[in-house]
């Protein structure tokens, strides 16, 4: 796609959409699972872990790593699609 003004607006809107999705997950795995719903999740056990505790001290961090790499992958694809990537 050519980098016209209209396309650049579309590119930006799509980028914002990605951000909303990824940041919602970011919020849920840390503030949600790790804090707000930790007590309820602690009723569930996985091996030696209570699930809420596991999210607070392990799971949220793994999720953060995955979120950034998902973002990198999505944006690289989007940059190419709208022809705004760096040569």
């Amino acid at each position: 796609m050519k980098a016209t003004k209209k396309n650049l607006e579309k590119y930006w809107k799509q980028n914002l959409k990605y951000l909303v999705i990824l940041l919602t997950i970011w919020f849920i795995v840390s503030f949600g699972f790790g804090i707000l719903f930790a007590d309820q999740l602690n009723q569930i056990r996985v091996g030696g872990f209570k699930l809420g505790f596991w999210f607070a001290q392990q799971g949220s961090i793994y999720s953060f790593v995955i979120l950034i790499f998902a973002y990198v992958w999505m944006m690289n694809r989007l940059d190419k699609k709208f022809d705004v990537d760096e040569k």
Binding site: L22, L23, W26, G34, F53, A56, S60, I61, I68, V72
Partner: peptide, 26 residues
């Protein structure tokens, strides 16, 4: 610090890593 705080020490673990998501995305 975490060893004395237990679960409450999670604020440091999540706080000092979750910021990188904001940094990368925003």
């Amino acid at each position: 610090l975490i060893s004395f705080m237990g679960y409450s020490g999670s604020v440091y673990l999540m706080g000092w890593t979750g910021g990188y998501v904001l940094l990368a995305l925003l």
